[in-house]
Amino acid sequence: MSGASLSPWLALLSRELRLALRHPADTLAAVMFFILVAALFPFGVGPAPETLARLAPGALLAAALLAALLPLDRLFGADAEDGTLDQLLLSGLAPAAVALAKAAAHWLTTGLPLLLATPVAAAMLNLPVEAWPAAMGALGLAAGVLSLLGTAGAALTLGARRGGVLLPLLVLPLAIPCVIFGAAGIEAAAAGLAARPYLLLLAALLAAALSLAPLAAGAALRTE
């Protein structure tokens, strides 16, 4: 992105963040959903600590990704309804840049709070404390990938009837690699092994999504 278009991009990002601060309910709902799903596991599986700890990595990842999906179906919907999306497409920003700003705002207002809530959920799932930093790293990266994939999904399903149902069906299968590498990393850290290789693989997925997903989302917004 050239310097000239960075300032409008930051203007859009700061507006998205300001809107999220005025409506904290969306962020709170995602965080509460995440913690509640994590809290359901001990009831369903039984409180045996070793069983829970065994399930914890996968459960954390799955719960976080589902929670991060919650605000996605309104990502472009509200803007499309009130005419803001037209103005954004005419703002001089490339559609891909608009999508990237949306994805960044989604990560900052959903992914980051989920990352901060990870210790609470990890404690309820009896994940060993040594694995908490790895869990936070894995969740942060996986939520980043989901923000990007989800933005592309939200742009594609914009205007589709029942887009809210379609969106998880499109996005979650693509997020499977994040669950695999993220859970493997947390498991490794819990067993006292290095989580770094897994987190690096997650970071590679994030890099790939970062370069591809905004382009896909931008193309979808264009043809809307």
């Binding site: 507006r15 300001r18 809107l19 005025r22 409506h23 309804e81 009130d82 005419g83 803001t84 037209d86 103005q87 497409l89 005419l90 703002s91 001089g92």
Partner: peptide, 17 residues
């Protein structure tokens, strides 16, 4: 886009701002 202003039917305002 840089040489036009488009006023749509909707007002393109954010109620919370």
């Amino acid at each position: 886009a840089a040489r036009l202003r488009y006023l749509s039917h909707q007002d393109a305002l954010k109620p919370a701002l």
